[in-house]
Structure formats: C-alpha cells, structure tokens
Design a protein around this nucleic acid. Structure first.
Lengths: 112, 112
DNA sequence: CTGCATCCGGAACGATACTG
DNA sequence: CAGTATCGTTCCGGATGCAG
C-alpha cells in the first residue's frame, strides 16, 4: 500500500479487521470453533447484521486466510466456517483488545 | 450501542481506533512522547494524510481520552499532543497487533 | 502555525427480492 | 440453507480555501 506500511504491520492488521462485524465474527468463531452460516447469523440475532454483510465479511476473511470455508455439496446446503491457524493466532490479540476495552470501560464509565 | 457490546469490549476498542490514521497517530506519539501538530503532520509526509483528517482524528482521540492536547497561547500558535495514561495503556495492544502483523506478513508473503 | 468550513466522490453499509 | 443481485443511503476521506 504505502511506503511506510512495511514499517507498520499495524496498518496491515487494521486493514484485515476493517469491517464493522469482522472482529465479532472472529470472536464467535474463536468461541465455537466451527459454525455454520445460519449459526453465525443467529449469533448476531439482536443486531442489524444482514446476510449480505455477513457473506461479504466472510469472503474477505477467507481471502485474507483468517477463516476456512468448508462446503458440503448436500441438499439442503451446508457450509461451515472455522478459523485457520493464522486466524487462531489472532485470538490472543483479540483477547488483548478485549481486556483493554474492559480496562477502558472501567476507567471511563461515564460515556459509551 | 448494541446489547451485546457490553459483552464485547472489543467493539468498543474497534470503535476507538476506527479511522484510517488513528493507529499511526498513536504509534508516532508512543515513539516520540510529545509532538506538535506540524511534527505529526511531517511524520506522515509521504502519505496522503490531510490536515483535516489529522485534526479530526486528533479531536476524536482527545474526546476518547487517548491523547492530551496542550495549547500554548503564543504567537505563532503552538499545540502539543501526547498520550494520556489511557492512551499509553494501549501501547502494548498496539505492539501486539504489530507483532501479529509481522507474523502474518511472514506467512503470507505473497500478497498485501 | 494551527485549525475550521465547505463541497464532493467513493466506499462501506443496509433493506429487499430473488436463486440453486 | 446459503447465498447473489440490485438499489438506496450514509459516512468516511480528500481537495481547497479561509481564519486567528
């Protein structure tokens, strides 16, 4: 991308997780190991995630080697998603971010 | 925001760093401790960061208690930015993300 | 030097309908 | 069940010009 991206893998990381729901998707996959498309969709039940965005983000994540997509040629269709080794290696970072988020919330309880 | 944001401080974290250059700003401030507006702008010299975005991101970061903004009522104007304790507490997360980014680049050398 | 205001183009996001 | 296609909207980011 940019000249200084080589010096800032952070930007790469940021790019990979750019997308409103990607972190949540990884988060759910980290907890449940393997999830079908519908399961993933239901996990977001009370939110506004649409099938389109879920599909799109899953495609991105697959292209970025963070999730596996296992298709079963059956009827009815069945597609399972799981984290790749690379995706799993991101879990600690995710947990770190979560811990920091909790820390932040604990300090700045007044606002969102 | 959403019901499940309380269970996912990650989303809070993601929100705080949403913005194309915020991570880089924090990164520079982490390295240099205190930087003036112009210094910060020059640090991004070879990139496309405009003053508007820099100002806007700095305002966001200030509102989110991640950076301090120290104004000197002088002529010419002088404004210094530095990380707050909360901002500094984010540095390890940043480093974690950077290490993972390097790890990722090492494995997937072929693509961006 | 630092920062704000305005306009604008494109990307991201969202709702709905349709397909194998 | 697991998507694709289309359309509309919102929002982010960029260029320029102005102000204290």
């Amino acid at each position: 991308m940019k000249e200084w991206e080589k010096d800032c893998p952070i930007l790469l990381t940021q790019r990979l997780i750019s997308g409103k729901w990607k972190l949540s998707i990884i988060w759910f996959l980290a907890q449940n190991n393997v999830m079908r498309f519908g399961e993933l969709k239901n996990a977001f039940d009370d939110s506004l995630l649409t099938q389109k965005m879920l599909t799109q983000h899953l495609k991105d994540l697959e292209r970025d080697h963070l999730v596996n997509r296992q298709v079963y040629n059956e009827m009815p269709p069945k597609v399972e998603y799981s984290l790749t080794p690379t995706g799993k290696s991101f879990i600690p970072v995710l947990e770190h971010m979560e811990k920091w988020g909790q820390h932040y919330m604990h300090i700045h309880t007044d606002e969102a």
